[in-house]
């Protein structure tokens, strides 16, 4: 049941776009971990492409809002982490070409 909820939340988070790269935070590899407790409490661990980016607060808020809006979710907590620091190698292979990745 929790695994399905994780997938549901992951799918919902694709609505959040990194404004700089123009791709969603899931495919960019910015979402490190999604944990669902008792089917209603969500803990998300995420990062940003660069530490100190002025959009960081907005991205974190957007991820929390979207996760909270998933049916059945009663609380969503988002933790920002830079361990490990994000690397372009985290980008999903399907969209790597869109960024002109090597």
């Amino acid at each position: 049941m929790s695994a399905e909820k994780v997938d549901e939340i992951r799918e919902a988070l694709k609505a959040v776009i990194d404004p700089e790269l123009g791709q969603n935070v899931v495919d960019l590899g910015l979402i490190y971990e999604i944990e669902v407790i008792d089917d209603c409490v969500v803990r998300i661990s995420m990062t940003t492409t660069t530490r100190g980016c002025p959009a960081t607060g907005y991205l974190k808020q957007a991820v929390q809002d979207v996760a909270w809006a998933v049916p059945g979710v009663e609380f969503a907590d988002v933790e920002l982490t830079y361990d490990p620091p994000w690397s372009p190698s985290f980008i999903a292979p399907e969209i790597a070409g869109l960024l002109g990745g090597r």
Binding site: P19, Q61, A62
Partner: peptide, 21 residues
């Protein structure tokens, strides 16, 4: 980039926004 933050950042995830580009 700053213009994007001023105009669109607050609705990120709530509705479709343009990219900085």
């Amino acid at each position: 980039f700053l213009t994007w933050l001023e105009c669109f950042a607050s609705v990120l995830g709530k509705r479709q926004t343009p990219r900085v580009q």
